[in-house]
Simulated scan of single mutants.
Amino acid sequence: MEDQNTSFAKPRQVVEKIVALIEEEGPLVTLRGHLKTFDPFIMFAEFAVLSPAGFPYHPHRGFEAVTYMLEGAFCIQDRDGHKGVINEGDVQWMTAGRGTVHTETSAGDGENIGVQLWINLPSKDRMIKPAYKEIESKDISQVESAGVVVRVIAGEAFGVRSPAYCQTPTMFLDFTLKPGARVDQRIPEPWNAYVYVVAGEGVFGEPDAPSAARHHVLLLGGGEGVSVWNRSAEEPLRFLLFSGQPLEEPVVHKGPFVMSSQKEIEESFEDYRNCRNGFEKPEQV
């Protein structure tokens, strides 16, 4: 599959390749992550959770989180009564805004695997009303051509647009390339972008670049778009492409909160401890 113009005058290259290391591991939960801040992205992680484990009730404020299931199912329930179950291929868009308290637990048998991306909010929107939206796999737009399948989770690719609304303009695409396939994907030139390899092995940016395999995070430099090749004769390549418009604002991330200053972070912890300003009665879940 090729975009309308694959001859990028300014092609994006891989400027940094990192292995997403295991940050937390237990008998039932494995968390593998990277990307502390790459404007507008705050954090990215792949999780693997065995039933009946999960993440107990915890607070968030000041950002949006996207949870996308690769295998199994996950249940996310907040203190206000929202309960959403996302299965393989489903996505949940959570706007923490001024404050939410929720739990995330496995909802499928065996291993439940997904990814979660934290997206910064503009400072003027940090304290908006919290919101949750689940999008089922069947409602996610998909295009297939010339050995390439792309699922458009957020943003637009090849003339197909996602139904998801993003407070911060964001692109989130799930690509699968059959053996020997190539894709050229345009990315808005001012936006930051990176790739996470889910399965297989591929070449990103330029034909003679070193290949990248499962669990690699690839930060892309500036340019009009990125080209990807699956050189394998047998194995498909699956990768996630994230891109977002930089906010270019001060940001401080500590624990479950993302704010614009250290003072606001301290106020967030104080609000949560005192059950106020968006964290009223968090124990009543």
Rank of each mutant, 00 (worst) to 15 (best):
N120L: 06
N120K: 08
L121S: 02
L121Q: 08
P122A: 13
S123F: 10
K124A: 15
M127I: 06
I128H: 07
I128G: 07
P130W: 00
A131R: 12
I135V: 15
E136L: 14
E136G: 15
K138F: 12
S141A: 15
Q142Y: 08
V143P: 03
E144K: 15
A146N: 15
G147A: 12
V149A: 13
E156F: 08
E156C: 11
A157L: 07
A157M: 07
G159P: 00
G159W: 03
G159L: 10
G159R: 03
R161C: 12
R161E: 14
R161T: 15
A164G: 08
A164N: 08
C166D: 13
P169L: 03
M171Q: 13
L173K: 00
L173T: 02
D174N: 11
D174A: 04
F175H: 06
T176E: 14
K178H: 09
P179A: 08
G180F: 08
A181P: 02
A181W: 03
A181K: 02
R182E: 13
D184S: 14
Q185V: 09
P190K: 12
Y196F: 14
Y196S: 05
V197F: 08
V197S: 06
V197G: 02
V198P: 07
V198D: 07
V203W: 02
V203L: 04
G205S: 08
P207I: 03
P207L: 11
D208I: 10
A209E: 08
R214N: 06
H215K: 09
H216T: 12
V217K: 01
V217S: 04
L218F: 00
L218W: 00
L219G: 02
L219N: 09
G222F: 07
G222W: 06
G223Y: 01
G223I: 02
G223W: 01
E224D: 14
S227I: 05
R231M: 04
